[in-house]
C-alpha cells in the first residue's frame, strides 16, 4: 500500500465496497424488521383470555361432606364442616390432570403423587397443587376463582 497521503479522496473505502456494505446492511436491517414483524404477528393471542372465575350454581347443591370433581376446571371442590375449599387438579410438573386416589392425587403422565392437601409426595413435581379460592355471593351461589 502506498504511503498515506492526501490525494483528494475522502477515505480508503472504494465506491464498490461502500455500495456492497450498505446493501448488506440494508438487507440485514430489513430482514430483522421482517422477522420482528413476523414474530409479533404470530405472537398475537387469537383466543380470548381464559376465564378467571366460574359460577358453580347454588351452594346447596354441594352438601357438607361432599367432594365434587369439576372436570373442566379441573379442580376438586370439598365441603367440610369448616366450609368450602377447592384444590386445582393441574399437575404442577407439566400440566396433566391428576386423579384422586385413596392417598391423595396421582398424575398419569410422569408419576408425581400428592397428599390429600396437595403437597408433593413423590417427584418429579416439586410445587404443591394450588388451592383455589371459593366464595358465596349474596344469592348463595358458589363462585370459584380460577387463577
Amino acid at each position: 500500500m502506498p504511503a498515506m497521503r492526501w490525494t483528494g479522496e475522502m477515505s480508503q473505502i472504494t465506491r464498490r465496497s461502500f455500495l456492497k456494505v450498505s446493501t448488506q446492511a440494508l438487507l440485514a436491517a430489513s430482514g430483522m424488521l421482517g422477522l420482528g414483524a413476523l414474530l409479533r404477528y404470530l405472537g398475537y393471542q387469537a383466543s380470548p383470555p381464559p376465564i378467571t372465575q366460574l359460577d358453580l350454581g347454588p351452594a346447596s347443591a354441594y352438601p357438607p361432606g361432599s367432594r365434587t370433581l369439576l372436570p373442566d376446571v379441573p379442580a376438586l371442590l370439598v365441603h367440610t364442616e369448616v366450609g368450602f375449599s377447592a384444590i386445582s387438579l393441574v399437575c404442577t410438573h407439566l400440566g396433566c390432570t391428576v386423579e384422586p386416589t385413596p392417598q391423595g392425587f396421582a398424575c398419569p403422565c410422569h408419576g408425581s403423587e400428592f397428599d390429600p392437601g396437595g403437597l408433593p409426595r413423590r417427584g418429579p413435581a416439586e410445587k404443591p397443587l394450588p388451592s383455589l379460592q371459593v366464595e358465596q355471593d349474596a344469592e348463595g351461589r358458589l363462585i370459584l376463582h380460577v387463577v
Partner: peptide, 13 residues
C-alpha cells in the same frame, strides 16, 4: 404463545 396462539390450548392451537 406463538405455538399455542393464546394463554391456553384451544381452537387457535
Amino acid at each position: 404463545q406463538i405455538l399455542v396462539g393464546g394463554a391456553q390450548i384451544g381452537a387457535a392451537t
